[in-house]
Simulated assay, not measured.
Amino acid sequence: MKKMLRIAAGIALSACVIAFVGCKSLPTVQEQFNTFCPIVTADLQTISTSPLLNADQQAKAQKAHDLNVKVCAAGASISVADAKDLANTALPAVVTIISAVPDTPSFPSTTIALALNTFGPLVLQLVEQGIETAQGASAPVAASAPVAASQ
């Protein structure tokens, strides 16, 4: 059984490598963020109104939804506090909630949890890139010509 799992994992890894080799370039973090935003928003909206969850769980999902909408709409003016709250607190809370719900055709909880677990680090990476860009822009520029040695 373990040998079959290793073979399956190897085949899956090979398929991923082949898929990436065929690409001219991988999508940037910003492109991935732009792609995932509407998907995650829709997932969180579905979760926040799901009859499979109690009112407290729906409220946590609604908080994550509202933060997600705010972060996605912010674009370049993203709030670091909101992004960190979404990625570090709100999304993990929702993942914990939906992980306890069994998969059904109308509510694929495992797939939704995977998407949410992927989106959080993506948001943090985008914020980190923004911080690095801002710091780089305010850093002093080094002299381009060497200074002549005094004689």
Rank of each mutant, 00 (worst) to 15 (best):
A113Y: 00
C72G: 07
G120E: 00
Q30I: 10
L86R: 05
A59S: 11
L126R: 00
S14Q: 10
E31C: 08
I11W: 02
V21L: 09
D82Y: 13
P92L: 10
F20L: 06
P27K: 00
A61I: 10
P146M: 05
L116I: 02
V80P: 03
N54Y: 07
P105T: 06
A143C: 11
A55S: 15
I112S: 06
G130A: 00
I97T: 12
T96P: 04
Q45M: 09
C16Y: 01
A15R: 01
D82A: 11
I112R: 06
I97D: 03
P105V: 13
K60H: 10
F20G: 04
K2A: 08
A115G: 08
A83V: 08
F20P: 01
I11F: 06
Q125A: 09
P146L: 09
I47P: 05
T46W: 00
Q32M: 11
K84M: 12
Q135C: 04
D85P: 05
A93W: 07
L86K: 01
I131P: 00
F107H: 05
Q32R: 12
L53E: 03
A9G: 14
A81K: 07
V69M: 10
T96I: 04
Q129N: 07
V17L: 08
L44E: 08
S77Y: 06
L44G: 10
L116S: 02
G120F: 00
F107I: 08
A115P: 00
K24H: 11
A93E: 12
D85C: 05
V21T: 11
Q129H: 00
L5F: 12
F33P: 11
T49C: 09
K60V: 11
P51R: 14
T49G: 15
L86E: 05
A137F: 07
A19V: 12
C37K: 04
E31S: 14
K3E: 03
G120Y: 02
L53G: 07
P27Y: 00
L52C: 14
G22S: 04
P38N: 13
A142D: 09
A74H: 09
S144W: 13
I78V: 13
K2Y: 05
T118W: 02
A12T: 15
I78F: 03
C72P: 04
L52F: 07
D103M: 14
K24Y: 07
L124V: 07
P38E: 12
D85E: 13
D85I: 04
T133G: 10
Q129R: 03
A42T: 14
I7G: 06
A73V: 05
L26N: 02
P140D: 13
N68T: 15
V21R: 02
L126Q: 02
S144A: 15
Q62F: 07
S99E: 04
S99G: 15
D56R: 10
N117C: 14
A100L: 14
I47F: 02
